[in-house]
Design a protein around this nucleic acid. Structure first.
Lengths: 227, 227
DNA sequence: CGGGTGCTTGATACCGATCAACCCACGTGG
DNA sequence: CCACGTGGGTTGATCGGTATCAAGCACCCG
């Protein structure tokens, strides 16, 4: 696990970080990137646990990271699934001192790690960094509220339909897409047990959705939109 | 509805805004406060709807505001219940252009309204304003993720027990508290139908919780903590 | 006293979690 | 090349929890 690399050994890092970097340019961008430490993780690796001191935040360059909250009896509720371009734990930069959930690698991943103290200092010189973070965190808050509403409103097939629609752009009339991760991860992301996802898919067959392995064919978008 | 007042007509406004103002002091604090417009709303008043252009964000000075997301069939999922000291829609300051949910007054309320454009401009001069917002929004994101996890993990009685514990400080062994709003609002906040809340309360009788109107007596905190 | 509102209680239906069995694809080693 | 084990996925049976609908109850206020 965690083979540490310097920033230059991973090309294309800026593209992956685009969402967090926001509109940052020039020196602010450069110096923030200089703080990044790229780390390689294997599946199942733990990144941090609830209650641990939060010294870093992270951006996913490749692979997937699962954020979840375990209850005392061992059951886990997934909070978020972070893929390439997503960042997590940045909300602790000016907030709490320790993590509020667990983070573990779902699929072999490359992460950029930022030392919070360093970023805080840097932001004193370049206030646009705070502004970029503000935008990134705001987006995540909006997503999170949306997710909450969807959880409370929609049934399993509706959530899956919803996911399929947003996953393939809403536009065209039929499409075929490939899941970037295991189905059980999707189930967690949607707040479902794996069995429930499976049943939802078979229910959606009647709406023209066919699934084989990780590839999903959507025959009739309109049917999905009707939920 | 919306009788507009100048900032000076409502004393104690600074105390109510403390959470959003954060550690702001001196001129930054003063000039931000100068931007606030205090507005009075009656229960059921609509503040904004999903899709409308977002020009302002708000802080609750008194009363309660309900944020919710309606689906096409008219059902509503509550996203958040904002009480005195809470602010909402600030997440749109640097993010989207229009609102993502509906906001309506649950109990007669006094709100401080801020013009986003003005705040953005002011933050250019006083970067600590962005930092205060960052902290405020970060806290809300953490809350929101926590809520999501609780929704997915806990049953109705557990959520109610949880609410009671946090509502009265977790410390003492027995307590009595008074709900600051209607029970149906609490139900929505906890993601329950009103009937389910009622049943949860009657279930909790066996754990020493007795309810009469808005007053709740907790006989045995330890029993609640055991869930 | 009559009507409204908020809350409770009961009956029912639905949805999804859980448990268990099975299937299939794949990789490994004899 | 086949036997076996493993991990991810599906399917079925069951159960528990909560929404929903409907009726009844308590309180407030005219």
């Amino acid at each position: 696990m965690n083979k540490t690399l310097t920033i230059d050994t991973y090309t294309g890092i800026e593209t992956q970080l685009a969402r967090m970097l926001g509109a940052l340019t020039g020196l602010a961008r450069r110096r923030l990137l200089d703080l990044a430490v790229v780390i390689h993780y294997e599946a199942q690796d733990n990144i941090f646990r609830e209650g641990e001191r939060a010294d870093f935040f992270y951006c996913v360059l490749s692979g997937y990271v699962r954020l979840y909250h375990p209850d005392k009896s061992g059951r886990q509720a997934d909070i978020r699934l972070c893929g390439p371009g997503d960042s997590f734990a940045e909300c602790l930069l000016y907030s709490g001192d320790n993590h509020r959930y667990d983070a573990e690698v779902a699929e072999t991943a490359m992460l950029a790690r930022f030392d919070m103290e360093d970023v805080r200092l840097l932001a004193r010189t370049y206030p646009e960094i705070d502004r970029a973070l503000l935008k990134s965190i705001s987006d995540r808050l909006l997503d999170s509220m949306d997710l909450l509403a969807k959880d409370r409103l929609y049934t399993a097939p509706q959530r899956v339909a919803n996911y399929l629609l947003t996953a393939c752009g809403e536009e065209c009339e039929s499409a075929s897409l490939r899941l970037p991760f295991r189905k059980s991860l999707l189930a967690g992301k949607l707040g479902l047990a794996p069995e429930a996802l499976s049943r939802a898919f078979s229910f959606l067959r009647q709406a023209g959705v066919s699934v084989r392995g990780r590839t999903i064919e959507i025959g009739n978008m309109e049917a999905l939109r009707r939920l």
